[in-house]
Design a protein around this nucleic acid. Structure first.
Lengths: 183, 183
DNA sequence: CGCGCTTGTCAAGTATTAATTAACAAATTG
DNA sequence: CAATTTGTTAATTAATACTTGACAAGCGCG
């Protein structure tokens, strides 16, 4: 497989930086940077990282890893697909239609009273974001417990042990965004 | 700058794949894959992409671009920081505390009646996700208009022209997640 | 105009390193 | 304990990342 879309040029020009000055900053020749920009040569990971830094962006961004094919963007409330195989009293709904190259996976969680995650020890690398919409949810990260009420949010690496539980007597609801998508 | 943490080995072993079989699948020697796994050699972008595919993950993931330093993960509803320099009648609140290497930037939008984005023609590469919590918001992507009501969500590339407007007579509210972070 | 300076690009090299080969010990297997 | 399979190492090769130097096109400025 070939890496094609490295849109360095566009980002560089947006910043008003010239090829030569940027090349000097990176410690490579201007000529080489030009080749890279036009796909004539492929940079090493190391220099690609330098390029990303110079443009204050990420490698992921440069190689277009986050460009998806535009599909049906909207998911209506009544069209949400529910995920199966979740814990008792836990409902998960997809907030996007199936699409390749999505960077994040937004979900809606609905927790019955006292429902919990069990041991969904997802241990992939990535990040998670949760915003509580209704009720209150207890989230445990590495033995540290956080009680989130309506309006509270949390952000953490998903490679650490994490679990959740609905403490209250009412149903709880939360937006849950995971990266990268696993469903 | 050197790329250090390429945790291929862990992912491979989790999948129960052996070095040699994976190497054969990639079209490289087992020896070389071993060197890469232990940081003795750095793969080309092309083979790194192959490795990512074989492990059904992303390059971004392999190079640990999405690992952040654990900080204060929680943002309470009353602690949200408001962004300045937004359009008239538009309020934006950060839903995370400042932290490096975040992959996504979750925001809460509050739109007064008839408030609109103006021409916030953000044209960076990345993706956006919006879930409407209150009221209804019209989002325009490349001249296509979508009216989202409470509970509806949308997901799109942020390098296309996009704008939003509160159509209704009441205030509107939405969760807005942007990748990569720009604030 | 015409000089100087800067822009990005090209072709032909060099130097670095990505990747291979073959052999190795340690762990399984049967 | 043979016999295969595991991951690792050293030495060599093949590939390509990167440089050098020259080029035309553009742009300001007297």
């Amino acid at each position: 497989m070939k890496i094609t879309s490295i849109h360095i040029k566009q980002l560089r020009e947006e910043k008003g930086i010239t090829l030569r000055t940027m090349a000097k900053q990176l410690g490579v020749s201007a000529s080489f940077l030009s080749q890279v920009e036009r796909g004539k040569s492929s940079p090493s990971l190391s220099t690609l990282k330098n390029i990303a830094n110079a443009l204050s962006t990420t490698i992921s961004n440069l190689i277009g890893e986050n460009q998806m094919i535009e599909n049906n963007p909207v998911v209506r409330e009544n069209e949400r697909k529910e995920l199966t195989e979740v814990s008792q009293g836990v409902s998960m709904f997809l907030l996007t239609s199936k699409d390749a190259n999505k960077q994040m996976e937004p979900l809606l969680f609905k927790l019955d009273e006292h429902a919990s995650s069990g041991n969904m020890g997802y241990k992939h690398f990535g990040q998670e974001f949760v915003l509580v919409l209704k009720g209150s949810i207890e989230i445990t990260l590495n033995d540290t417990r956080y009680v989130l009420k309506k309006g509270d949010s949390i952000y953490f690496n998903s490679n650490i042990a994490h679990s959740f539980k609905n403490l209250g007597k009412e149903k709880a609801e939360a937006v849950w965004v995971v990266t990268p998508p696993t469903f």
